[in-house]
Design a protein around this nucleic acid. Sequence first.
RNA 1: GCGUCGGUGGUAGAGUGGUCAAUUACAACAGACUGUAAAUCUGUCGCCUUCGGGCUACGAAGGUUCAAAUCCUUCCCGGCGCA
Length: 396
Amino acid sequence: MKFVIEKKVAGTLARAGSIETPHGTIQTPAFVTVGTKATVKALTPEHIRELRAQVVLANTYHLYLQPGPDIVAMAGGFGKFMGYYGPTMTDSGGFQAFSLGAAYGSSVSKVATGEAKGNKTEIENFNGKKQMARITDEGVEFRSFLDGSKHFFTPERSMEIQWKLGADMIFAFDECTSPHADFNYQKRALARTYSWAERCIARHEELDTEHVQALFGVVQGGRFKELREEAARTIGALPFDGFGIGGSFNKEDLGSAVGWVNAILPEEKPRHLLGIGEPLDLFDAVEQGCDLFDCIAPTRMGRHGSLNTQTGKINIRNKKFTTDFSPIEKDCTCYTCTHHTRAYLAHLFRADEMLAGTLASIHNVHFLLRLVERMREAILNDTFLEFKKEFIANYR
RNA sequence: GCGUCGGUGGUAGAGUGGUCAAUUACAACAGACUGUAAAUCUGUCGCCUUCGGGCUACGAAGGUUCAAAUCCUUCCCGGCGCA
């Protein structure tokens, strides 16, 4: 993998560049489409190509459970397995330490609003019903969401599985913490993530002797500036090919948290903001120096009937759309908007037809891909901040 | 015509003297979703409300009872059987 910065925006950390991978070049900043189980939900690989998605990210935990890393390896890696031949990434399974752990069965989101409070991140109920992941310094014990069976992930194991999954860029195994975790817990979790980072590098070097697979280290630290900066220094000093910024954030200051980190991380390596994809968050992240983002929002929200437009999100199931024969967005060039009406979408959703999720996902993914594409153009034209201002004014 | 079973909220369908404004499902109306446990989940869903409660409701009209969707009478409507 080779990363080149083409242009920077004065007075900000924003930059545009390109990442060369064995399966093609990514123009950054770029939105990474999420295909957790080697499928971008509701979309065919042909849709993905037509949408000009530049990268697809799959998940280690999910593909490990089903169909298993050996089958994916036999298929020639997850990209080939699913029939997508562009650049690929895999997430390490570290996010599942949170989603199946502290967040399991609760409404806790990694992007929290308001004051951080409470602390129930130490997992004690693994054998009860509450949580499906238990974290120790050695690794994470997961329960399969498919059949309840127990599985133990270590940093080494994550590297081995990701090696078999065969993506161009992979992530170090980290612990994604809850926004409600207190300072002391975050500090302990960080110590684990540091040690896991080193173990990942060591194991990956053994597996990938020719270094065809880029390894990204992950910066954690939760909502604490002190810890975020420490993590950026610590992880940033390790010989990773790029960096992921993960974990939980304050909705209000997500941008500044990303800025604390990127001000410290080595400039010449790409930075991937993990799991963030709300339009306004993307502007902040780009301004604060991120190059890549992945997010399930466009596909999940799409399947749930929430569609993005330049003036904000709409819920296409709302009554008012049942007789609205205009496209989702007048000037949108996506397949859905050029062929179908809001009324038709509203009907498909109400009729519980599968095509609803597909058409909605096409639109939402197109929306984000084009948005980030325009951010890149704006950076190259030196109009990024104006573009941001203009977009926000419309979007609210 | 006789007999018989049945008529419950937008729909289907529970309930068969008080704990019933009435289980449940669907529909409807709105909301949530940020490295996918998610084609998922949540709230509302007779009318009014100062959120304490008040009012009108289970085909219609009477009646029994302290109390009726629930029991009785008649009527109306529907299914089935016999003529």
